[in-house]
Structures are given as structure tokens and as C-alpha cells.
Design a protein around this nucleic acid. Sequence first.
DNA 1: CGCAGAAATGTTATCGCGAACAACGCTTGA
DNA 2: TCAAGCGTTGTTCGCGATAACATTTCTGCG
Lengths: 339, 339
Amino acid sequence: MANDEKRSLTLRDVSEVSGVSEMTVSRVLRNRGDVSNATRERVLRAAKDLGYVPNKIAGALASQRVNLVAVIIPSLSNMVFPEVLSGISQVLESTDLQPVVGVTDYLPEKEEKVLYEMLSWRPSGVIIAGLEHTEAARAMLAASGIPVVEIMDVDGKPVDAMVGISHRRAGREMAKAILKAGYRNIGFLGTKMPLDHRARKRFEGFTEALAKEGVEIAQKEFYSGGSALAKGREMTATMLEREPELDFLYYSNDMIGAGGLLYLLEQGIDVPGQIGLAGFNGVELLQGLPRQLATMDACRREIGVKAAEIIAAQGEGKDTAMVTELTPKISFGDTLKRR
Amino acid sequence: MANDEKRSLTLRDVSEVSGVSEMTVSRVLRNRGDVSNATRERVLRAAKDLGYVPNKIAGALASQRVNLVAVIIPSLSNMVFPEVLSGISQVLESTDLQPVVGVTDYLPEKEEKVLYEMLSWRPSGVIIAGLEHTEAARAMLAASGIPVVEIMDVDGKPVDAMVGISHRRAGREMAKAILKAGYRNIGFLGTKMPLDHRARKRFEGFTEALAKEGVEIAQKEFYSGGSALAKGREMTATMLEREPELDFLYYSNDMIGAGGLLYLLEQGIDVPGQIGLAGFNGVELLQGLPRQLATMDACRREIGVKAAEIIAAQGEGKDTAMVTELTPKISFGDTLKRR
DNA sequence: CGCAGAAATGTTATCGCGAACAACGCTTGA
DNA sequence: TCAAGCGTTGTTCGCGATAACATTTCTGCG
């Protein structure tokens, strides 16, 4: 069954064993073209006995086709991108395409490097998070000649196609809901965000909508690194110490929101009576919390699905919409009064 | 800067623009061999102007070398594997190797498929989670002729190298610690684990060590799917309803443990006085909980680091240890009495 | 039985790059 | 001035597969 040679097997080895030409072996293994059942079986048998695994490198070079889709995202360690990936995988599973993931750690230069690396494998498409890239990265994407889908965000101009939500609008909507519920003394807690453009846009939309009603954010607090849950806890404590009059806390993601929620409950503070809370993302984690945190679904899975569908469709020559804006819905949970 | 042709660029295009041979361009772009500064700069300039990205497919075929390391893991959506990955990436970053991730969803057939797919790209090494694979998968690994490191687990026989902890031992140690603290009426909560061999082994070690002291697990509960935090909560409620006399709950992972902890605290139950708790993995999340859950670190990052080091070393022809067993440490937290 | 047309199989020419070796040209010292 | 020596650049060939076309072997039907 196994083979112990140093040199790896080729079509030629299989063809010699099965007594047909390399071309026929190739046809059998790719299920393409007419091959009689007898030879097909003989070839499959030989391939299996030898433990032959086709060399896609050579195959790709010869056929000028690579069944890979580059997926470039900032991080795997929060809950958001794995869910996007799962949407992508689900769709691609029914095609012959395969996702390959690259992680950028929110660093533009690393993004550029990862992109270069992936493009050098000539994938069939690129799905990349965000609309902000280095100039070189944009140029590569534009020059690549393959379908490109920028995801998560629609506040900007895409190289090619984009699928996402408007984070500015998400921030605005949340602000409106908060104001409508009667809160006025609002604190914001988020990541240090020079490089997280989507968090920044939410923040901008949020402050903008507040300003329109003459409200200004009373307190801000930013973190970076560490356990988000713990950070949410700490930041909440710090902020309330500084400004006990706050009646609402808007967190830029659910994890720190959850940390804040746990802290407030521990302190015996009335949520949402005394203080209201809201996060962002709609992560699954929230379902296990003592109280349901108000949040806004970022449509992560759906974004992955749509993006993959675009790539798959373009692979088949079909035309597709260039911009797909999804609309997140507020979930009020138990931490944001309704009216 | 950008190029709009349909056909993608080749060395030839760059060579024509810069007026040297393709070989010289190749040398410049790979930083290999002697090239005068004048031509080097001319070539780099041309490549950049054209937006040329080398074709690694052709390069790999010609050089018979691929700088990819296949990393095959069951899931991305829990906290455990991303951390392993981060260890791997960190090490590989200082080499010219690059990880490529494949996900199996804990399904042996999918693992086999993913492995086949990855091997067909002729990577420089394979890092794969677990010691249990289909026979075909084992055969492929053995026949591949490249370094293979099986990770996470050392309770079994590896194809080649392995790095991990003994989950049987981890289960035993936790059992001992629990007994030593005086608990006797113990419940177990975990995943439905026919396919999660490591969870199964922990469970086996756990029951075995209890049995040695004449203790038997009083209640068991298994889940699958859904939000782990919420499941932990539900299962804990169910279990205590069925058997209020329990004085300890051992969870097969920290997420469900955290759900249980939150539930118990809400119910005003004295932890760890009335009921003790422990989980497994040592995930970062725990740091934000109201009380520190007892757990056992799975050495995830370190496993990734060691595995990557082995691959990197073998790439350079160095010999390495075939078995690396790491020893997890119990962290008592606030939910397991000390003696 | 014979021949058209389909089915099955083989042949040849790439694909884009890198390894190995060849050739070039400039410096240097006898 | 010229050969040796070295740094630099070019040529040839092949990596392992597939596309496109060529050829052979079956079929079926008049």
C-alpha cells in the first residue's frame, strides 16, 4: 500500500503499473473524457496501490487553473472571522473551489505581504476583509485579473466587488436607539482603533448621530491586547469610577460588553434601569450570559456566503452585483430599554 | 502601475522591459546568485512598474520545493486551535515556510479529503491534530516522504513525530486533585465525543483515577452543537435538578464550565464550598469571569511552537526528537478548594 | 460484410520557472 | 599584451501535468 521511495510518484509510475498512457491515467483521476470501465478500474487500482497523490502544482501549471480562493482576514482569535469563514466554506463546498486563509493581524504591511504570497499561487479569486489597503495591495488586486470581493464593510470604494454592512450606519442606528430609550449620559468603550477601520466607522457614525441630537459622548476608553472579557470588566470599572453619572455604555464589541455586563451585575447595578448597555457583533457567546446583551448582528455568516457566491459565479462567467449591502438588525436583549 | 491585460505577467515580460534575460530577473527576484546592483535595480524597477507577481506554481515545479506547511485541525471556532496556529505562525515567520490551514470539523472522512488535497500541493511538512486517522490517511502520511507532526495528544502511536500532552493523564490528575480536596459526589459534563478522541481520553483517565479510589461518577451529561456557554448553563441546571447532592462538576471544556459557573453564581450557590467546578483548556476568556474557574492548561501555544520547530528543523536536515510530551499544570482558580 | 461515426486511447507541445552549466567581459599581473 | 580568474549574464533542459489534436478500436446498421 505505502511507498517508501524518496522520489514522489508521478503519473508515469501509475501508467507503467496499469499499462496505459499517462494521459489516460490523468483522465481517469480527473473523471474527464471517455475511459472504459475496465481501464478506469485498473488505473484506480494501481493509483491506490501505489498511494499516488496527484501533483496539483504540475496540474495547475499545465491547465492554468487553480481551484483555490484566497481569503484574507485580520484575525482568527475573535469570534467574528471564523463565522465568515464558515459561510465561505459552506458555499465553496458545493463547487470545486477551496478556501485558503491568510491572517494579517490588522497590519497593512502584513496584509500586503500575505496578499502577494497568495497571489503568487494564482488563486481563482480573492476575498479580503475591509476596503482599506496599501496602495501596492490595491494595485496587485486590480492587476491580478481575478475576481476580488472586499467584505465586511461597504463604506468606501471597492477594487471590484464588495459585500458587507455599513458600520457608519450601524453606529448611527445604535445611537438613535439609545437616545430613543431616553439615555443621555453615554460612555464609549472600544479598541484602540487606528487600524480597525470598521470599529472606527461605527464610532464615527455613533458620535455623529448623537451630535445631531445635541448629545456628546461623556467618556471614552480604549484598550488593546489582553482578554477582551477582562478588559471590558476593567474598563467599565474605571469609567464608572471616573464618571458615576453615566447611564449608558456602548461597547465596540460584544466580548468587552459581556465583561462590562458581568461586572455591573456583580456590583448589583440595575441594568438596564440605572445603566444601559450595548455591544456589537451578535456573537453566539452572548446566549450564555445571565442577561442578554443588546447588540447588532454583523451578518457575518451571510457576508461569507454572499462573497463566496460571487467568486463562484464569476468563476462560471456569470455576472454578479458589485455591491451587496446587508442590513444588520438591532437586538435589544435585556440591557437596552425599549422606548 | 497596474496592468489590465487578461493574461498574467511572466518573467519574460519583466525581462523584456528591463532588457535582461529571464534568468537574471529570476535571480534578482529570489535574491540568489550574483547580480550587479545596476541590473538588480533596473529589474526591480521594471517588476514593480508592471506589478509583476512571480508564479510560484511554475517556480515550485521547477525547483521541486514548496514553502508551505499543511496544518490540519478540527475546528477554528473554539479558542483552542487558533492559539496553536499562533504558535506555529510565530515560529515559521522566521523561516521561509508558511502555514496553510485545513479544517476537518472532527470528521475523519473530511480529514482524509483535506489531507489528500493538501498533499497534492506537495507541502514541506504536515502538522495534523490528533493521532487517530483513517487508514488511508495514515498511509498517505507515511508515503508522503515529508516530515509529519501529530499534535495535541501523545496517547498513541504517531506516524512520525508527535507533540502534545497526555489527555488520559490530564483527566487522572484532575480527578486526583478533586478527590484530594474532599469532593466525592462528582458530575461530568462534556461533548458527545465519539469523534473527539482527546475529550474521550480525558474522560477515561478521569473515571479511571476516580475508580482507583472507589469513586464513581454520579451523573453524566453530554451535548453537541449550540453555544457552549449556554449549553453549560442548561446542562448544569438539568444535572443539579436530577441530582442536587452533587458536590463537584467536571466540565470537558472551559466554555461550558464558564456557563455552569455563571449559572451557579446566579443561583446563589456557594462555589467552591457547596459545589466545586473545573474545566479544561485554560482559555483566556476565563480571566474575565467573576470567579476564576479551575482548569488545566493544554499548552496550546507551546504545542504549536514545538511542532513548527520540528518541521523547520527537518527542513534543514537536522534530526529532532520524535516524541515531545508537555505537562499541563492544574490551575486551581477559585472554584476548586485546595486540600 | 463493410463503413461511418463514436468511443477509447495515444502523441505532441506547452505551462512558467529554476538548476546546471556555458559563455561573456572586465580586471589583474607576469 | 595576453591568459588566468572572477563576477556577471545567458542557454538549455526538464519539473509533472493537461490541452489539443491524432490515431486506433469498437459499434451499429444498411
